[in-house]
Design a protein around this nucleic acid. Structure first.
Length: 737
DNA sequence: ATTAGTGGTGTTTTT
DNA sequence: CACCACTAAT
């Protein structure tokens, strides 16, 4: 049997999972237990044993990285064309389906996708158009409100309103929707909801896809939200098998609506008891795994699972307490150099942190030490200002009713159209129920602004015509040139980088068109018996729209050359699914990790702990845990105590490195300056780590001190009342043991 | 209309 | 600190 090749090297549980019959099942797979391997091998096995063609397989992941990884691995196992398979993120797959059936979904062919920036801008525009008080209805909050509701599958009428505030929020949600439909744009959540509604309302399409995808495989199932669950359920119908792989201990996206409930529901509704646990870890050495296991047992809400490894004992975890964040960074630099000297590749070393803001200090130190590094996250390629400008022109060329794109570039480069003129256009558009573009075409303005608008209209019209016969790369090149963006940045201060990025955008387009022949046409044509849903998309325009979708959905993950020998810097969230020989987890401080915003939420700390669990289990051999006594944040020095998670790791697993750990308090003058204290001043009783009693809030621990003398303020974490900032002069604090 | 400068404010994590 | 929204000066 050929299939024995594929199954070789798997342990009994993995093998059982891969070769399950065609029924739904839940695979509870711990970190490093070969989850991705099982998933990809399952696909290969289904195909190789002739149980399924590539055409019948749909695999969903959460990140584009994971999707690519999966395709690579499948191609390595089987010499087949993976084109027939649907492999991608929920958003990517929904987009693909909506592009193929835009008419049935009630969308214009050239519908555009809003990223978070665009969405927030649109929300603000809606609020402004209605003269809503932004103090009372903060744009951000409205955006979350909209997204949360969509992710729960609720359109405005279905929103439960308890009070006036939420009644109004629901109204604004409806207004936002109206505007989106007008402009032909969809946000991330809309992709999912719209696709779900398309399938649930259109029987022909639903039947088609249900018949097609006999095998649905889901990675990182613990991260699915309600709507995604319902979407899967719809697609599975009564007969298809869902093979779901997940780990409740690695659920770190509940803030985005992910719910462990889905795992319970799935087991009940689909798997019906077919649950396989993968508990053998092939990644980490003993001590690292012991630390992870010990940590996670502090969580109450678990399905229960314990990882073990056949690997023997190992290096202790290394713990380092730095006086400042700067010294934490230089410690890391030194250790990285030492690791490199023992022939560890830089690309096998990761520096992890809780929030993106922490990367600056690290980057600075690495730069000075001339260590090559690569930062994931932060500002991505397609989110850069100059790129967004260029994309806005492209969007207008495809869909001129996109008001967001219109506003972004109406006066870039400057055409003499100021806020005043834009307001006139907006008023005209609103009054007549038309887009800004239509208003610009039909509203005569006087003077310089009028000329500017006319010039802009002509430019866009020219672009639309001239692009028609061109390839994607040529289109992008033309737009970048003719829009005047190149010239505009030639005159700017930091324009050089931006010009390079614009050139890079042309390259990206060239790469895209060669590797991504338009799918929408083929997908639509593949639906037999649904002739009315087959639209007649112009393949060239479709390719431009696919490129624009790609820009929104995949914001350009690698900006540095992938695979280059560089240190890997990223947040813990983006490290999920990856593994490294050596891992540094930095900033292990109360308030940072666990993040202070999570302390007030009911399940907040448990999620932070899962996050820490994810971080620890990224490491194969070496794991460094670092924290700093003081840290610059938001322009202020903060005084932090060690993260509770450090106390939850058994002491014998840890080895303290370096200093006395107390350096910086009172001894060296340099440190005293850093701390902002005058060394001659008597030590204040209010110090980080001090337990205190407050008449109203009860017992707590000081976690931060700011200022001194009568201005002094302390941050106290109260056991009952949570975090409070108090002025020492007024708060009746007493030291407690 | 555009620019520079100011002051106030907020902030996790990501498709 | 960094991003904004608003104001004053060109």
């Amino acid at each position: 049997m050929i299939s024995s090749n594929i199954l070789a090297g798997l342990n009994p549980q993995q093998r059982e999972a891969v070769a399950l019959p065609q029924e739904s099942a839940l695979i509870l797979a711990g970190a490093g237990s070969g989850k991705t391997r099982v998933l990809t091998t399952r696909i290969a096995w289904l195909i190789q044993t002739g149980q399924s063609g590539p055409h019948s397989i749909l695999a969903v992941t959460f990140t584009n990285k994971a999707a690519r990884e999966m395709l690579t691995r499948i191609s390595a196992m089987l010499p087949i064309n993976t084109r027939g398979m649907w492999v991608g993120t929920f958003h990517g797959l929904c987009n693909r389906m909506l592009r193929a059936h835009f008419r049935d979904a009630g969308l214009p062919q050239a519908f555009q996708i809003l990223d978070t920036q665009d969405q927030l801008a649109l929300v603000k525009r809606v609020l402004r158009a209605l003269n809503v008080d932004e103090e009372k209805y903060p744009p951000r909050e409205l955006m979350y409100f909209i997204n949360n509701n969509k992710e729960a599958g609720r359109r405005p009428p279905a929103v439960e309103v308890q009070d006036e505030f939420y009644r109004r929020m629901a109204e604004l949600y409806a207004e936002y929707e109206r505007q989106c439909n007008h402009e032909g744009v969809v946000d991330f959540a809309e992709l999912l909801l719209r696709c779900y509604e398309l399938l649930s309302r259109n029987e022909i399409l639903r039947a088609h896809y249900q018949q097609r995808f006999a095998h649905i495989l889901v990675d990182e199932f613990q991260d699915t939200n309600r709507l995604q669950y319902l979407w899967l359920k719809l697609l599975a119908g009564a007969h298809n098998a869902i093979f779901a792989v997940g780990d409740d201990d690695q659920s770190i996206y509940t803030f985005r609506g992910a719910s462990a409930r889905n795992m319970f529901d799935f087991e009940r509704e689909f798997a019906k008891g077919r649950v396989i646990k993968l508990e053998q870890n092939y990644r980490s050495q003993g001590n690292i795994l012991d630390a992870a296991n010990a940590l996670i047992t502090h969580n109450k809400n678990r399905l229960g699972k314990n990882l073990w490894t056949a690997e023997g004992g190992s290096e202790a975890l290394r713990l380092y307490e730095a006086p400042t964040d700067l010294e934490e960074a230089s410690f890391i630099v030194e250790e990285v150099k030492a690791l490199r000297a023992t022939a560890i590749r830089l690309s096998q070393i990761a520096l992890l942190y809780r929030s993106n803001a922490q990367s600056r200090v690290l980057e600075h130190a690495l730069f000075n030490a001339a260590l090559p590094y690569r930062v994931y996250g932060g500002l991505r390629f397609f989110e850069r200002q100059e790129i967004k400008h260029a994309l806005a022109y492209l969007r207008l060329a495809s869909n001129p009713d996109d008001d967001g794109a219109f506003l972004r570039v109406i006066n870039i480069p400057a055409r003499g159209i100021g806020g005043r003129s834009v307001e006139v256009l907006q008023a005209a558009a609103q009054q007549r129920g038309i887009s800004l573009w239509q208003a610009a075409c039909s509203t005569p303005l006087s003077g310089k602004a009028g000329q500017g608008v006319a010039q802009f209209v002509r430019l866009i019209e020219q672009l639309r015509q001239q692009c028609a016969p061109l390839s994607l790369a040529e289109t992008v090149e033309l737009v970048v040139e003719r829009s005047g963006l190149m010239r505009y940045y030639e005159g700017e201060r930091d324009g050089l980088d931006r010009i390079e990025n614009l050139a890079e955008l042309v390259n990206a387009a060239a790469g895209f068109q060669s590797e991504e022949p338009s799918m929408a046409v083929a997908d639509a044509a593949a639906v037999d018996g649904a002739a009315q849903s087959v639209s007649d998309p112009d393949p060239r325009l479709a390719l431009l729209d696919e490129f624009l979708s790609h820009a929104a959905l995949e914001a350009g993950e690698h900006q540095a050359a992938a695979g280059s020998e560089a240190l890997q810097l990223m947040t813990v969230h983006s490290a999920k699914g990856l593994e490294f020989d050596a891992v540094f987890i930095s900033g292990l401080e109360e308030g940072l990790f666990p993040h202070e915003n999570s302390l007030n939420e009911a399940e907040g700390v448990e999620e932070e702990r899962r996050l820490m669990y994810v971080a620890i289990t990224r490491a194969r051999t070496w794991l460094y845990l670092t924290h700093a006594q003081t840290r610059m944040l938001h322009g202020h020095t903060r005084y932090n105590i060690a993260s509770r998670f450090l106390h939850e790791i058994p002491a014998p697993l840890l080895r303290r490195l370096g200093t006395s750990g107390r350096r910086g308090y009172g001894t060296a003058n340099a440190s005293a300056t850093v701390l902002g204290y005058n060394t001659s001043e008597p030590a204040s009783p209010w110090r980080v780590g001090q337990d205190v009693l407050h008449p109203k809030f009860g017992n707590g621990t000081i976690v931060g001190v700011q200022g001194r003398g009568s201005d002094a303020r302390v941050m106290v974490n109260f056991r009952q009342a949570g975090m409070k900032e108090l002025a020492v002069e007024y708060a009746k604090l007493t030291p407690a043991s």
